[in-house]
């Protein structure tokens, strides 16, 4: 197992390196000068020159990259032009809310997806299967932020079951933290759940009609054991392999869902930074989310290795 983790970590390093090069080169893609873009049309040439010097645009790119990357390794992502704060501090403030809602969304997606997939995959062609599978088609199409809007309108604004401002930090009050996360996680997890449900259903149908299923059935293994132990574990192999992509999508969508629930996450930070062209913060957010996706994929791949013996390095 240690070998698998080491191997996967080894792959993650070049991936992070390439991503950071891409992120670094963002400022070079801005038409004209990014400094002028940030300061607006009324900026004086002196101010522009000052900001350009601050961004290091007056020096050769390679020299700047080495410096930028070195700072990155020490956790220094530069300073926000709008907030005047270190980008790292801004990210640290916003990360808890994003991590919470993404974790909640992943849990909802997995529970709904695997649950619905196993339910439908063990009774293909029945009315129950068609109803639930029809539901997943809807789940794929529903815009997550609209679902969130409906959920808050009904449960927070109209019924008052949950507070309208949902966010409480985990450290302040764990129970309130969880209560506040219920609706955002639901809104975020439904589409991912629908994708996983469809894949799980197909994989479950395959694994329940595979020759080994016949072998075990004929040998007298009860259907319940058959589903719970053999069907699900075999079905998870193809499902897990494609789950990483689903979670990358989910992290992106959390930026939109966040707005509906007024969560103080990376999304609102990104939004103000995109509008204000605050490039150091944009770079920071992209780096953090990419790292998050890479870490989640790492965990998924390790789980994949735990489930599928042939994926472990020999």
């Amino acid at each position: 197992m240690g070998k698998l983790v080491a191997y996967r970590l080894l792959f993650a390093v070049p991936q992070l390196l390439v991503i950071s090069i891409l992120v670094f080169s963002l400022t070079y893609l801005v038409p004209g000068s990014p400094a002028a873009a940030m300061l607006g049309t009324s900026a004086t040439p002196e101010a522009i020159a000052h900001v350009e010097a601050q961004l290091g645009l007056d020096r050769p790119p390679l020299e700047r990259f080495v410096e930028w990357f070195g700072a990155l390794l020490t956790g220094d992502l530069g300073t926000s032009f709008r907030a005047g704060m270190p980008v790292t501090d801004l990210l640290a403030q916003r990360l808890p809310a994003t991590l919470s809602v993404v974790a909640g969304g992943i849990v909802v997606a997995l529970v709904l997806g695997v649950g619905a997939g196993v339910f439908t995959g063990t009774r293909p062609g029945t009315l129950a299967d068609r109803l639930v599978t029809g539901g997943t088609v809807l789940g794929l199409a529903i815009p997550e932020f609209w679902l969130g809007l409906l959920l808050t309108t009904v449960f927070a604004v109209q019924l008052g079951w949950v507070p309208i401002v949902a966010w409480t930090p985990l450290t302040a009050d764990p129970l309130a933290w969880m209560r506040g996360l219920v609706l955002p996680s639901l809104a975020l997890g439904v589409t991912g759940g629908a994708i996983i449900a469809r894949q799980t259903r197909a994989a479950m149908v395959t694994s329940m009609s595979a020759p080994y299923a016949d072998t075990l059935t004929a040998a007298g293994v009860p259907r319940r054991t058959q589903i719970a132990r053999y069907g699900v574990k075999n079905a998870l192999v193809p499902v897990l392999a494609s789950t990483g992509v689903t979670f990358a999508i989910l992290i992106g969508v959390s930026f939109v869902v966040e707005k509906v629930f007024a969560l103080p996450g990376l999304g609102s930070l990104m939004l103000t930074s995109v509008i204000g062209q605050d490039f150091p913060v944009v770079q920071g957010v992209v780096l953090v989310t990419a790292t998050l996706v890479i870490v989640v994929n790492l965990v998924i791949d390790i789980c994949y290795g735990l489930i599928n013996p042939q994926a472990r390095p020999q």
Partner: peptide, 21 residues
């Protein structure tokens, strides 16, 4: 292409709009 997978789709959209308005 694998590495590009690490960037959530919406993030690409954000970045393009940040750069180009």
């Amino acid at each position: 292409l694998d590495i590009a997978d690490a960037l959530p789709g919406l993030m690409v959209g954000f970045v393009v709009i940040a750069i180009l308005g």
